[in-house]
Amino acid sequence: MILTLTPNPSVDHTLEVDRLVRGEVLRVRATRSQAGGKGVNVSRALAGAGIDTRAVLPIGGGGGAELVALLGDLPRVTVPIGGETRANVTVTEADGTTTKLNAAGPALSPEEIEALLGALDEELGRSPDWVVASGSLPAGVPDDLYVRVAGLAAAHGVPLALDTSGPSLATAAKAGSVSLLKPNHEELAALVGRDLPTLGDVTEAAREVLAWGNESVLVTLGGHGALLVTERDARWARGPRVRTRSTVGAGDSALAGFLAGEGPPPERLRQAVAWGTAAVALPGTTVPQPDDVATDGVSAATEPDPGWRIAPS
Rank of each mutant, 00 (worst) to 15 (best):
L120G: 12
L120M: 13
D121C: 09
D121T: 10
D121E: 15
E122G: 09
E123S: 11
L124V: 14
R126T: 11
R126W: 12
S127I: 00
W130H: 12
W130I: 14
A133G: 11
A133F: 04
S134I: 02
S136I: 09
L137R: 08
L137K: 07
P138Q: 11
P138I: 02
P138W: 06
A139M: 06
A139N: 12
A139I: 00
A139C: 05
G140F: 05
G140I: 04
V141F: 06
V141K: 03
D144K: 07
D144S: 08
L145D: 07
L145G: 04
Y146A: 11
V147Q: 07
V147W: 01
V147I: 01
R148Y: 07
V149W: 07
V149P: 05
V149A: 12
V149E: 07
A150D: 14
A150R: 15
G151K: 12
A155V: 07
H156T: 11
H156M: 06
H156I: 10
P159M: 09
P159F: 05
A161Q: 06
A161P: 08
A161E: 01
L162A: 10
D163E: 04
D163W: 01
T164R: 02
S165D: 01
G166Q: 04
P167D: 09
P167K: 02
S168G: 00
L169K: 03
L169R: 02
A170D: 15
A170V: 05
A173M: 09
A173N: 06
K174R: 15
A175S: 15
A175N: 11
G176S: 13
G176L: 13
S177C: 13
V178F: 05
V178I: 15
L180W: 04
L180Y: 07
L181A: 09
L181C: 06
L181E: 10
P183A: 02
P183E: 06
P183M: 02
N184C: 04
H185Q: 03
H185I: 00
A190C: 00
L191T: 03
V192N: 07
V192M: 06
P197S: 10
G200I: 11
G200C: 08
V202P: 15
V202G: 13
E204K: 12
E204W: 05
E204C: 08
A205K: 14
A206V: 09
A206F: 07
A206C: 14
